[in-house]
Design a protein around this nucleic acid. Sequence first.
DNA 1: TATGCCCTCGTGAACAGGAG
DNA 2: CTCCTGTTCACGAGGGCATA
Length: 278
Amino acid sequence: MPHGFDKLLHHEPEAESPPAPPRRLSTQSRYHLHVRQQPIAARACGAGDRDRRPVDPPPIVQILLNDFDSNSQEDNDILQDPRFTVGCLLFPVSPQSPWSEPTESDTGDLDQDREKDREKDRDTDGVARTDDPFSTPLLSGKAFMSPFYVEADPDPNSAPPHPSSINDPRLSSPSNAYNHPSARLHQPATFFIFADLSIRSAGLYRLQFRLMNWGSVEDTGQSMPILAEAWSDPFRVYPAKDFPGMRDSSILAEGLKELGFVELKTRGHGKGKGKKRR
DNA sequence: TATGCCCTCGTGAACAGGAG
DNA sequence: CTCCTGTTCACGAGGGCATA
């Protein structure tokens, strides 16, 4: 396991340890994470490994680059870098907490002061932490995913534009030609698809995604820096009886499966597996 | 009440048989 | 021989029940 992963998997509460490099978000990073497909619901799967109930729909995270230039070989190489990894952490949300409000999940830009307040809240709100080393982890399945690169976004209508460092509102306006879906039709994209995430207990949760590159560890021998972070919207995990059922797959999920991400299970539109017959 | 297990549904894959 | 169509099998997914 690369240096730094162990801290991410078993990291301690902030209050008990000084900020370690793996928890520091690089402020000069060009990288952004965008939660392309938000988790909406899940069925609690219990403590065992036999009963796996994946989060529905599977969260899909996309890398965005500041001032991305599709004509730049360097930028394209970055998107195709196989050493990127996105780790996923699960945090319970208390219904009374303002923390449950959806905030920066679309931008991935975290206000550090507010984040510190949240960390404090999480340590004092009495809600079980998924990263508590003395409790059973709530999240099971593949919490770390490798990148899945596609040369053309399978769902350009929902594709976010890459952020621009130029603060010209015209550039970010929907009428701008660059931001038009047709302009993003053949734009490459790198996704991290969490198709095998399941949660053991019912409740309200959010997922935190952290972008890392273990290539930087090989080069420096230091702990792994976090290049970007993003939060999912709050979603509910239902007890077996109350689970409303799986939703049909999105256009994006269908497209990614067709492009070769076979681990992604799709449902609806005449696809999906069924059951044994008598 | 939570959780593990069982049953059923529905589809894809594999295969066989017939038509051209 | 190839292609098309129908049938059968295997399996993952989802719902619901039994039990601790």
